[in-house]
Design a protein around this nucleic acid. Structure first.
Length: 570
RNA sequence: UGCCCGGUGGUGUAACGGUAGCACAAGGGACUUUGAAUCCCUCAGUCCAGGUUCAAAUCCUGGCCGGGCAGCCA
């Protein structure tokens, strides 16, 4: 048999793997592969980070190496220890383990300073007392070369002395910086005497007030990689221009030389993935927090009901390359459906209920019917559900004047109640004032218990239901795309493209009693609707509140040409 | 009028000079007590122009288009 598809969950062949593969083949020094994930503790992780985490940890796993977690905490102005825990939690939740290899760039401040001293001693770095404005002026522009600073040729001993005084806190913030002496004429602006250290007197959450100067990203990052003996330093494309500087510093300090490799960051349709825009959503209260189920953050996805498995799978499917990309959000949805379909218990829940009275079913009678828990996994068994005279069905499973090919309930028509009976609609009762449907009356066919028609008549439609006695009323949140356009990044303001209907809450949904004791995070398929998870237990009612993770695929909605599938306005 | 990177179906990603494949999406069909799942089928692609070669998505040259870079952010 031909092996047509690749084994599940195998990472796509990508160019980084190819580089490593080639190194191992032609290999001279059989070094152990060491990668790292280097977040700055200044925000929450999102699915773009998950891609990076996945690349780094997956590679380590694949080549029997290791992946470090290193917090890039070089700027006390931006960073906050609260983020440390959330970042660790999210990585662990995704299923990755850095083991003993947890580091902080701040652990290396002393060594970094030694490196800076060495460069200064070698005449490769100098103290510049120009103002921030002057430095910018002299840097030149994209189309013009820079000009050397008047401080560039300061004697070495003076530089060393000033550097030490800078460290001691003898100078004001902004009064001077340490710069590498490279090339003010370079076409690459990063090489025009980049700043290595700046004075910051804000205390650092780890080193306190010990340091008055802090290394910039360019000076801290590569050297930290080197100290940790990283072999492959994988980052996103915007650092490509920094690679010549990364290499220059390491070569001029004469230390272990990791290889920086850049890949294209992830973009997903109908959402944003930049830290700035994500914060804006939170700060301007477009969402309820970083972990709002509409957010593409790891914590948001978790609250939404995504599983680590589905996210990892997604990361494997999107591949790794250098070209700009926007992955359709449908692929993410596919990944979570794939996982949940296999593993979730089926259950019946009515988002927007309408009452149905079975007029020929005795008033005080009820009976138990058998329902299968998961047709994908027989081991999951079955459960009993209760049928009685008064039940609820989904309001959009009834239409008084249905279009053709509508297989659900309508006047005079029959429909099957899943695992129940075949019923026929006999009457619709409306509110005289509002004309709203108050109640639907049906008759059931007693010979169709379990939903089987002994006379062999074909019943095309099957709908979900709960009996009023065997269900509880609770709140259900439905989510849609946060943005109404495919590429929100292309618009100036979030406001003009945010989807006003990204969240819809139903307060009177009815769920079968089977879920009374469901706990936060528990996941279910509500038959015919989608996958839902318990958001939390309501503090007043003590009942679970549900979030819709994703709808089931819905070919009826497509036929209808509806842009808002499932539960439309009543 | 600088430096760097990139352009393969609608989207994402393979093919390493030798049959352009996979996934998602879309369309159709089979099955169906979830309009789900599953299964089958279909649609659809190498930015352009030259060159090298028996043979080019792949190598070369020149265009065109897209992206990144002028923080004491990362």
């Amino acid at each position: 048999m031909e092996n047509k598809s690749q084994p599940p969950n195998q990472i796509n062949n990508n160019f980084i793997q190819e580089i490593i593969e080639n190194e191992q083949k032609s290999n001279t020094s059989a070094k152990q592969l060491v990668t790292r994930f280097p977040p700055e503790p200044n925000g929450y992780l999102h699915i773009g980070h998950a891609k990076s985490i996945s690349i780094n940890f997956e590679l380590a796993k694949l080549y029997n190496g290791k992946c470090h977690l290193r917090f890039d905490d070089t700027n006390p102005l931006n960073e906050n220890p609260d983020f440390i825990e959330s970042i660790k939690k999210d990585i662990k939740w995704l299923g990755w383990n850095w083991g003993e290899n947890l580091f902080y760039a701040s652990d290396y401040f002393e060594t970094l300073f030694e490196y800076a001293t060495k460069l200064t001693l070698d005449g490769k770095a100098y103290i510049d007392e120009s103002s921030q404005e002057q430095i910018r002026q002299l840097r030149g522009t994209l189309n013009s070369t820079g000009t050397e600073s008047p401080y560039r040729n300061r004697p070495i001993n003076e530089n060393v002395e000033l550097l030490n005084k800078m460290r001691n806190g003898d100078f004001e913030e902004g009064s001077m910086v340490l710069r590498a002496k490279i090339d003010m004429n370079s076409g690459n602006i990063n090489l025009r005497d980049p700043i290595l250290y700046r004075i910051i007197k804000t205390p650092h959450f780890k080193t306190g007030t010990k340091w008055k100067i802090y290394p910039t990203y360019d000076f801290a990052h590569g050297q930290s990689d080197s100290i940790e003996k990283i072999t492959h330093s994988i980052c996103t494309m915007e650092f490509e221009d920094h690679r010549p500087l990364y290499d220059w510093l390491i070569e001029n300090i004469h230390i272990h030389h990791p290889q920086q490799i850049e890949f294209a960051r992830l973009n997903i349709s109908y959402t944003v993935l930049s830290k700035r825009k994500l914060s804006e959503l939170v700060e301007k209260n477009y969402v309820q927090g970083w972990d709002d189920p509409r957010m593409p953050t790891i914590s948001g996805l978790r609250k939404r009901g995504y599983t680590p498995e589905s996210i990892k799978n997604f990361c494997n499917k999107i591949g790794v390359a250098k070209r700009q990309n926007t992955v359709e959000i449908q692929l993410l949805e596919h990944c979570i459906r794939e996982d949940l379909n296999k593993n979730c218990k089926r259950v019946m829940g009515i988002i927007d209920p309408v009452k149905v009275v079975i007029t020929n079913y005795p008033e005080n009678q009820s009976e138990k019917l058998e329902a299968i828990n998961n047709p994908e996994q027989e081991e999951m068994g079955s459960r009993k559900i209760e049928f009685s005279r008064e039940i609820y069905i989904e309001s959009n499973d009834f239409m008084e004047d249905p279009p053709k090919k509508y297989f659900r309930l309508s006047p005079g028509k029959e429909v099957r109640l899943r695992y129940g009976y075949i019923i026929k609609c006999t009457k619709v009762i409306r509110d005289e004032v509002s004309n709203k449907i108050l109640q639907i009356e049906c008759e059931y066919d007693p010979n169709t218990k379990g939903g089987y028609a002994p006379d062999g008549r074909k019943i095309k439609g099957t709908i979900h239901w709960v009996s009023s006695s065997n269900s509880f009323e609770t709140k259900v949140n439905l989510f849609n795309n946060l943005f109404s356009v495919e590429k929100p990044d292309e618009y100036d303001s979030i406001k003009e493209v945010i989807n006003p209907n990204s969240m819809e809450t139903f307060h009177n949904s009815r769920i079968e009693n089977h879920l009374l004791k469901a706990m936060p995070g528990d996941k279910f398929q509500f038959e015919r609707l989608g996958y839902f998870c318990v958001d939390k237990i309501d503090s007043i009612s003590n009942l679970p509140i549900f979030n819709r993770t994703v709808t089931l695929r819905d070919s009826w909605a497509k036929i209808q040409g509806s842009t808002n599938p499932k539960i439309s306005q009543s």
